[in-house]
Design a protein around this nucleic acid. Sequence first.
DNA 1: CTTATTGATTGATGATGTCAACTATTGAGG
DNA 2: CCTCAATAGTTGACATCATCAATCAATAAG
Lengths: 141, 141
Amino acid sequence: MCAKPKDPHACEAWQLLVRFSFAQRSSLPALAAELELSPAQCHLLNLIEPGRPIPMGQLAGALSCDASNVTGLVDRLESRGLIQRRPSDQDRRVKVLSLTPLGARLRSALLERMTAPPATLGKLSAEEQRALVKLLRRLIE
Amino acid sequence: MCAKPKDPHACEAWQLLVRFSFAQRSSLPALAAELELSPAQCHLLNLIEPGRPIPMGQLAGALSCDASNVTGLVDRLESRGLIQRRPSDQDRRVKVLSLTPLGARLRSALLERMTAPPATLGKLSAEEQRALVKLLRRLIE
DNA sequence: CTTATTGATTGATGATGTCAACTATTGAGG
DNA sequence: CCTCAATAGTTGACATCATCAATCAATAAG
């Protein structure tokens, strides 16, 4: 079942992470719906940091999706007054997105809910949690 | 940003896991497309274990989605000959799903690709990987 | 037997996602 | 300067995903 039999620990760690990721995938829609957002909109909103405008094309890259898909997502979020589209000064082809104050508030509410640690983390001691953080950090960066 | 300020390590660990989960979300569509599947179909296929038929309603529960959505997903997978719909013997209202041989082969190919550990895991030593496995296991179970 | 409940399907509708075609802007050479 | 290719974003067509309300058949409860 694993592609690199030489490295059983790597395989198992990865499998556990993937399993976790699938479980997450199931819980996101409900959480998003509380804020009247879709999972895709959450993902996009998450990528626009407050005070840090970002071109649409860059978002398409980060989401690994077609640029035309971003157009639609942005249309809906913009019509709700959550984000703002502005042509770039350097290159008038590119449109730069930024959060409105309303959007920034919603984004922070979203992050707060998404990253609220579930009870299951209580299974680990403070020490173990610290160890987990160290390992994950090195993995992701 | 964190809901339980008392537990900063739990917060950070959870945030890292969520971040990982989002990154995963971006890579799944491409991986799935290689097998001509959508992410949702992957998720569903993943839940039908070979030799272990499962009622449709139970799948809807596991996917946390509407039953009518499962109908459509199953329609497409069945028309491709990957899974099979059969009324249950005990209760003829429920339809039980099972993998066809073709579906079982595709599922195992899918799992193999999904759980192939990426190079990034090489950043951790064998010992660290073992530690990570232990922590994640306790977290998930 | 009658009625209510449950599991699945259908139809309507909106969101997501891809692709191909198009517009506008930019940049490079002649 | 002028042409031409490349780039960023939009549009329209189309398939999939996902929900809801309504329906049908089978089961369960009275």
